Simulated assay, not measured.
Amino acid sequence: MPRSASRTVALAALGALLTCTVAVVVAARSFPESYSPARLSWPNASLLLGWARFDAGWYADIATQGYGYTPGQQSSVAFFPAYPLAIRGLGVLGVDTFIAGVLLTVLCGGAAVVLFTRWASHLKGEDAARDAGLLLVLYPFAFFLYGAMYSDALFLLLLVSAFYLLERGQLLPAVLLGAVATAARPVAPALVLGLLARRLEWKHQRGEKWTLWDALPVLAGLGLVLYVLYLWHAFGEPFAFAKVQSAPGWDQRPGWRTWLKVRWFQGFSSSMTLADGLRLVGHAAFSLGALALVWPTVKRLGWGYGAYVAAMVGMPTLSSKDFMGMGRYLLAAFPLFLTLALLLRERPRLRWGVLSTSAVLLIALAAAYGAGAYVS
């Protein structure tokens, strides 16, 4: 009896999880002085220190202390509430904050991979779903699904769940999950557009007329709306999450310098290190590659998913000063992995070449992250 796509991908994800964990632990032990916000809680725990880096400190602070906002300075309001609230929920059960963050990522990442494979199988069959699932679990930045204390795993799980339910005709549950997703990351317009466009396309494919009920995906933006209202009530600044992006150190001020990526070009200087150059070129390449897959997504998955991918990739690409972080942001544009699988279906050697290269990069980036290097 042939192995199902979900089982194959789940086993591959388990292997990737274990391999990345080993890489992170070895790297963390090799660079014991690298900073981790979890050091005060677990000073000698290589696993925890390796997975709790950078923004993990912000999420832990929100989960334990709540939000703070100081105009003109980096503040915790930049981070949306769904993930730290989930961490706080585990904390109520007595789980250490950083353990809760890592555990939440592992659980959500695993569930997201399985649901993604089922979504892909529903659309294009078992073979395509298997290939797409392998591309996802071996994606170079997929280590953010395997333990890194970031919101990406939870966000991806919510996104995939919403669209999977939408494909099965369960509109209201899909919208409710979408609303939770827009409380996890500041990309509500992309998700609302995607759910609405796909719902209308789905009805059209079934030969059914559109009704007012089909506009329900608009309410998926309620997560963002509620966060905006909270910020207005708590700090008198409804869009504080956007304003703090221009604070020193983040320097993501909206405007033509950001849109034209002036800081990206300035990064290529005589003092640039090899690591700096790889980051600059790598994230830009991932961004442009994802944008190049928008039209193939329209042709193979429909204009609904094409619109979703265009918005989900376009928004962070436009708002980033130097493409930094785009590698992990592209996890949210999950239909791209199915599109790429379909493109590679007739090119088995190229497919295995892509998977092998991705696997090597995945392990290397996980190790770099565990060592405290800023990779995304």
Rank of each mutant, 00 (worst) to 15 (best):
P2R: 14
A5N: 04
T21Q: 13
A23K: 08
A23R: 05
A27W: 11
A28G: 02
F31R: 14
E33I: 04
S41E: 12
L48P: 00
L49Y: 00
W51I: 10
A60F: 06
I62L: 01
Y67G: 00
A82Y: 05
Y83F: 15
G89A: 15
G91K: 06
L93W: 04
G94A: 08
G101M: 12
L103Q: 10
G109M: 03
V114W: 12
S121R: 10
L123C: 07
R130A: 12
D131Q: 14
A148L: 07
D152I: 03
F155P: 01
F155S: 14
L156N: 03
V160Q: 02
Y164R: 13
E167G: 00
Q170F: 13
Q170A: 14
L176A: 13
L177S: 11
V180G: 07
P186C: 09
P186T: 04
E201T: 03
L216E: 02
G223W: 01
L229M: 11
Y230D: 09
F235G: 00
A242K: 10
S246A: 15
P248E: 03
G255M: 09
R257D: 11
L260Y: 06
R263S: 15
G267A: 08
S269P: 00
S271C: 06
D276Q: 15
G277Y: 08
V294Q: 00
R300N: 09
G304I: 05
A307D: 02
Y308V: 01
Y308K: 00
A310P: 12
G314Q: 10
M315W: 14
L340D: 08
L344K: 07
Y369C: 03
G370H: 00
